[in-house]
Simulated scan of single mutants.
Amino acid sequence: MSFQEVKGQSQVIRLLQNGLLHGKIAHAYCFAGPRGVGKQKTAMELAKALNCEQKGADACDRCRSCLRIEHGNHPDVIRIKPDGASIKIDQVRQLQRAFSFSPGKEVVRVIMIEQADFMTPQAANSLLKFLEEPVSAMVAILITENIHAMLPTVLSRCQILRFSQLPPAILAKKLEEQGIRKDNARILAHLSQGEEEYQLLDQEEFAQLCRRVIEWNQEILSGKSSALVSIQREWLQKQTENERLPLVLDILLLWLRDLVHHHLNKTGKLDVSVFSEWEAAREEQAYRWNRSRLLLGMEAVLRARSQLAGPMQPQAVLEQMVLAMQEGSL
Rank of each mutant, 00 (worst) to 15 (best):
Q94G: 04
H71E: 08
L188Y: 06
L166N: 11
Q313N: 15
R291T: 12
Q307M: 14
L247K: 00
L295R: 06
P75K: 05
G104T: 03
V135A: 14
S65G: 00
Q320S: 12
C63G: 04
L166T: 12
L308C: 08
L95V: 04
N146G: 01
C63E: 04
D117M: 02
P103R: 00
L201Y: 03
C158K: 01
Q320I: 07
P34E: 08
V108K: 02
I111Y: 03
L166C: 12
A32Y: 02
K129S: 06
A324V: 01
Q208R: 13
D83Y: 05
L296Y: 03
I170N: 00
A85N: 11
I160M: 09
L161E: 07
H261Q: 14
T144P: 00
A304G: 08
S136Y: 00
K39C: 13
E204A: 12
V135Y: 06
V135M: 13
L228C: 02
I187N: 04
H74K: 03
L330A: 08
V248T: 14
E284Q: 15
I147R: 14
E132V: 01
I113S: 11
E241W: 02
A116V: 11
P134Q: 04
S156K: 05
E5V: 08
M112K: 01
E327L: 14
E234N: 11
A32H: 09
H262D: 07
L323Q: 02
K266V: 13
E299D: 14
P134W: 00
L236R: 04
L201T: 00
T153D: 09
V248G: 06
G56M: 08
L175K: 06
S329A: 13
P311G: 00
K182N: 10
E132K: 04
N146H: 13
P168M: 05
L254I: 09
L95W: 05
R109G: 10
L16D: 05
G19D: 05
A172D: 02
L131M: 15
L155P: 03
A309D: 09
D58W: 08
W216C: 07
F118S: 15
K266Y: 07
K174S: 10
G328A: 07
L308E: 08
A172I: 06
Q307A: 15
N184Y: 07
R288W: 08
D83I: 00
D258I: 02
A172H: 04
G33M: 01
L131Y: 03
P75I: 01
V92E: 01
P103K: 02
A137R: 15
R97E: 14
V229D: 11
S136D: 11
E132D: 11
R233I: 02
W216K: 05
L20E: 07
E327C: 09
S225D: 12
Q165T: 14
L308R: 05
H27A: 05
